[in-house]
Amino acid sequence: MRPGQSLCSIVMTQPAPDTPATPALAISGLAKTYASGVVALHAVDLTVARGEIFALLGPNGAGKTTLINAVCGIVTPSGGSAHALGHDTRTDYRSARRLIGLVPQELHTDAFETVLATVSFSRKLFGRSRDDAFIEKLLRDLTLWDKRDAKIMELSGGMKRRVMIAKALSHEPELLFLDEPTAGVDVDLRRDMWEMVRGLRERGVTIVLTTHYIEEAEEMADRVGVIAKGRLIIVEETRTLMKKLGRKTLTLNLAQPLGAIPEALANWNLALAGDGHELVYEFDTQAEATGVPSLLRAMSDLDIGFKDLNTKQSSLEDIFVDLVHESAAEKHP
């Protein structure tokens, strides 16, 4: 403690004592079987901490949207429960829903309404009293202010997406669901969206987003959950997941094309590509020995020369494809 610094100022910098340890979202055994008999969710458990950005990753039809809709009240769950900031989303839905914002995947908008009217409507619908200053700031942040008096049907798809986000944020939610926020969105809006998500996180808003753009999860999320066929297969910190399952590929551009992989190199997991001009070696970065130096030595002994080489870290996308296939293989051995 520096001389002259009062004890009070130190106490003040401590985290607020009333911050409850209650998670932003606690889902337990949440299941959904549609009337058609399709099981969209098999008893999913998931906890998302406050202030976290959580990405739900999965192919189309995996159950991402059903999971979000079951929490938000759009789908009636067949079983299990969900709590948003400690409030049961079914028995105490008023308190829960006041704190939840939802941006659905589809652009559902009222064609004839103006931007300002529809965003103000959403705020009141969620029981918040009128706040012109807040709505103006929100619309400015989303570069919608100039379009505030335009009818929604006159807007481009990207602008409509912004309107949907503005509606979801109009009542200052603490837990925001973004269902495929960047599907069919241009680079500009995607960048703005990521900017916005970071800004919201700084304000302590918890964000659950679904995506099948892996780069989005990689870029944004603190943790990633992979969902396939209605089951959460894995929930892991993004970095850990990358490390754990990260694979690298080494590609060697050969000086002379090879017809087949030489016997002497059979110990390595090699493949030929580009009509024999490229030798591809896939290895695990977490293995004790990657096998790269020994491969290069062996090649040198065989007098196989190469002009260039590059290595590539596998993206979450590859990881994700592996995971989904593994879980499918477990089910149908």
Binding site: G73, I74, R94, R97, R98, I100, L102, H108, F126
Partner: peptide, 14 residues
């Protein structure tokens, strides 16, 4: 029909 019902269903309204 337009899908905007999502907002009513997800709102804190009985």
């Amino acid at each position: 029909w337009a899908g905007t019902i999502y907002e009513i269903l997800s709102a804190p309204i009985s």
